[in-house]
Design a protein around this nucleic acid. Sequence first.
DNA 1: CGTCCTATTGAACAGATTCAATTACCGTGG
DNA 2: CCACGGTAATTGAATCTGTTCAATAGGACG
Lengths: 239, 239
Amino acid sequence: MRSVLAAAELPVDHPCAACDIRLRTFCKTLTAEELRRFKADGPTVTVGARQPLFHEGDPAELVFNLISGSAKLYKLLPDGRRQVTGFLFPGDFLGVAAGDEHAFTAETLEASEMCRFPRHRFEAFIEARPPMKRELYRMAMHELAAARQQMVLLGRKNAPERLASFLLLLLGRIGDAADRIALPMNRTDIADYLGLTKETVSRAFTAFKSAGTIRLLAGDVVEILDGARLETIASGASH
Amino acid sequence: MRSVLAAAELPVDHPCAACDIRLRTFCKTLTAEELRRFKADGPTVTVGARQPLFHEGDPAELVFNLISGSAKLYKLLPDGRRQVTGFLFPGDFLGVAAGDEHAFTAETLEASEMCRFPRHRFEAFIEARPPMKRELYRMAMHELAAARQQMVLLGRKNAPERLASFLLLLLGRIGDAADRIALPMNRTDIADYLGLTKETVSRAFTAFKSAGTIRLLAGDVVEILDGARLETIASGASH
DNA sequence: CGTCCTATTGAACAGATTCAATTACCGTGG
DNA sequence: CCACGGTAATTGAATCTGTTCAATAGGACG
C-alpha cells in the first residue's frame, strides 16, 4: 500500500490545486475567477485510508472532487458479494448522482484530500455555467462508454484478459514515465472490480510475472515490461 | 420471435407517435409545437429484422429514436466474443455518442420504425432547449446507473440470478398487464447480454419452468407466475 | 409434409472458485 | 537493528459452475 504521507505532500491551504493542474476533469473549463469562487464554496477535507464517504442508499447531499489519494466505488448484494464499479483518482468527481440517493458506496483506499460541496450548491453552480454543464454531460457520456467497456470485460473476458485490461487502464491513469503503477488497492479490491476472486487475481499476476510481462516491486508497485503484450492479451486477440 | 407485422400496427404517417405517448424519454419535455418541428426534422424509416443501424467504429452521424420494434447494442472482441450492452424499446434513443465514432453496433431485433436525425441537427435542437438538455443529461445518468447495475450482474451473479434479473427488467419495460413478456430476442442474444452461453440460458429457463416460476408460451412469450420468487432470486438473497 | 433454424437436453471438459496451508511483507516494539 | 506479530499475498488441491461439443426435439413456414 502506498504511503499515507502522499496526501500530505500537497499544500493544504490551496484547496483545489489539483483542479488547476489536472486537465482531465471539467474544472478545466473554468476561468481563473470562477475557479477561485468554486474553491471558496468547497472546503477541503482530509480523510484517512479506508474511510467511507457515503453508502449506497444514503441521501445524495454532497459532491466531492478528489484532490489527492484514491477511492473505490462499489455495490453489494445482500449476501455480501461485492462489485467494485470503479476506482477514482485525483481530479475525479464523485457523488454526482442521478436520483436523490447514492447508487453505490464510496470509500477511500488511502489517505485522501478532497473538496466537498453541498449538492444543491454544486448544481446551482453548474446550472449557471453552460460550458460546465456541457462538460459534465461529456463526462457522464465518457463514464457510460467506460461502463460498457467494463461490461465486455465482465461478461466475456477470461482472467488474464481482465487483469491485462485493468493494468493498462491504471497505466494510463496513474502510471509514471517508467511504466510503473503504485497500486493503491489490494487484491480483493482488484478481484471485486474484475469479477474474480483474490486468488485468481494473484495467479494471473504470477503468470504475467513468470512470462516477463510485468515485474512486481516493493510497495505494491507493478512495472509494465511488455505493454504491447498486455495490449494483445487485453484485447482478447490471443484467445 | 414476435411477428414482423407488429411494427406495421402503428400509423406510418404519424412519425413520432410514440413520443407523444411514452413518458420515459425526454420527448416528454417538448411542447406540442416543438414536437411538431422535431418530427418535421426527422423522417421516419422502417427497417427490417436483424438490420444493423450502425457499426462500432462508424462515424456517429445519425441519431435515432425508436418508435416501434426493438434493437440490441453490442460490442465485439477480435475473436468474435460478443457482449450485448443493452436492448432498446419504443421511445429509446440511440446513437447519442460521446465521441465522433459509435462505441458499439446497433441492430434491430425485429422490423422496427424509427425517427432518424442528422446528429448536428439533433444537437443544435437540444442545445437550443435547456429543459431537453437537462433531460438528456438525466437520461445519461440513468443509463450509467443501469450500466453499473449490470456490472454487478456480470461480475457477481450466477446464472439463475442473471436470468431472473433480466426477466424482471423486461417485465418492467415490455411486460403486459398479465405479466407476460413477448421476447423479441433469441437465446443467444440473451446469453450475450448476461455473459453466459445460450445453453446455460436455456437450462435456466427450464429450471424456472420446472419450479413453476415462469411459463413458456407459444411465440416466445414468457409468463411470470411468481414475480416475488424472481425478485428474491434476482437480488441474490437466495444464494 | 419436409426443411431449416432455434431451442433443449446430455455428457465430458475447463476455468475459476473454494478451502486450506504457506510465504511474504510491513509496522511495531524490544 | 532485529525479532515478533498480524495482515495480505501466494500457492496448492479439490470442487463446482458454466462451457463446449454433440445429439435430439420443437416450431415456423413454404
